[in-house]
């Protein structure tokens, strides 16, 4: 496994990094955790001329909550940081559920949430989670910063909306209006395998009523699928069996799976149904008990 020749730079500021990308003129690539990029390079599926390693950039390893409850995840925050996060365990159940399911423990030590969003793999877990939560990405380029909603940021399989000289600096999850609840389920054939199918569900409740809902799907389409219609039926209603079944049906219908060595299209669609139903039923049971 011997990559093609490339240059390597490890800048110490975002401005410097952006300058290198600009000079790279589209032939440069950002290196974050390297857990998606390095495999591509060693197999020569990607042969960038320059790698701009952002691991030395200061002040990007954070994940934190603003006073209003907005959650921010910096570009160098690793999957493992999120997995062990008391903040998420306390306040953001969908992210807390997903973190230990991303890849395997070794990959989680290096890989980043922001890198995963940038990589935009239809089978990546974080894009589904951030979609269900209605998040966005903050990008910095030569002209300064801009905010890109997740639905626009991931704009195709392995495609994102960044310009060649922009760096994604953080992912942002808006503050919840009600009590956040939800979960993430996926089927993998083995730890570290990409999802055969996965479902991220994020709801906010007030009393026993759902005030906001997001459902997004992993691995069952050309890119992350926002099952907005399925989520919408939940809003304004308590989480009863009937509405859960309706949402699960709609989510399964929103999936666009293909048959491959991970399973048939029919099976994957069924998994989406099962997962959405399981998460919502569990959330429903807890809200009922709390109410």
């Amino acid at each position: 496994m011997y990559p093609s020749r490339f240059r390597y730079e490890a800048p110490h500021s975002i401005e410097e990094a952006v300058g290198l990308l600009q000079a790279g003129d589209g032939e440069a690539k950002v290196l974050a955790g390297g857990q998606s990029l390095v495999p591509l390079i060693k197999l020569r599926f990607a042969s960038p001329e320059l790698l701009v390693d952002i691991n030395d950039l200061p002040g990007l390893a954070y994940h934190r909550a603003d006073p209003d409850g907005t959650i921010r995840v910096g570009a160098l925050c690793r999957h493992a940081d999120l997995e062990g996060s008391a903040l998420l365990a306390d306040r953001q159940p969908t992210m807390a559920a997903a973190a230990p399911m991303v890849a395997d423990p070794i990959v989680r030590n290096r890989g980043t949430l922001v890198g995963s969003l940038c990589h935009a793999d239809p089978q990546g877990d974080w894009a589904a989670v951030v979609t269900a939560l209605g998040g966005h990405v903050v990008a910095q380029g030569p002209g300064g910063r801009r905010t890109i909603p997740i639905g626009k940021f991931v704009n195709g399989p392995f495609q994102n909306a960044l310009a060649y000289d922009e760096i994604a600096v953080e992912a942002v999850i808006p503050a919840p209006g009600g009590t956040p609840a939800g979960g993430y389920l996926k089927l993998e054939r083995r730890v570290g395998d990409f999802a055969t199918a996965g479902a991220a569900v994020a709801v906010e409740t007030s009393g026993d009523l759902v005030t906001r809902a997001g459902i997004a799907l992993t691995g069952v389409g050309g890119s992350t699928i926002d099952a907005a219609e399925a989520a919408q039926v939940l809003v304004g209603r308590p989480l009863g069996a009937e509405v859960i079944a309706e949402a699960a049906d709609l989510a399964a219908r929103a999936a666009q799976p293909k048959s491959d060595h991970r399973g048939s299209a029919k099976y994957k669609r069924h998994l989406v149904h099962t997962f959405v139903e399981r998460i919502l039923t569990r959330v429903g049971d807890t809200t009922e008990r709390a109410a």
């Binding site: 055969t196 048959s259 491959d260 060595h261 099976y267 069924h270």
Partner: peptide, 26 residues
């Protein structure tokens, strides 16, 4: 005995035989 093959056997109530074919539909 990958999960999809076991699920197929349970729901379709038939044997699942042969090399797991690589079914790719576009």
């Amino acid at each position: 005995l990958l999960p999809d093959r076991v699920y197929e056997a349970i729901t379709e109530r038939h044997d699942v035989s042969g090399a797991p074919p690589v079914k790719v539909d576009d």
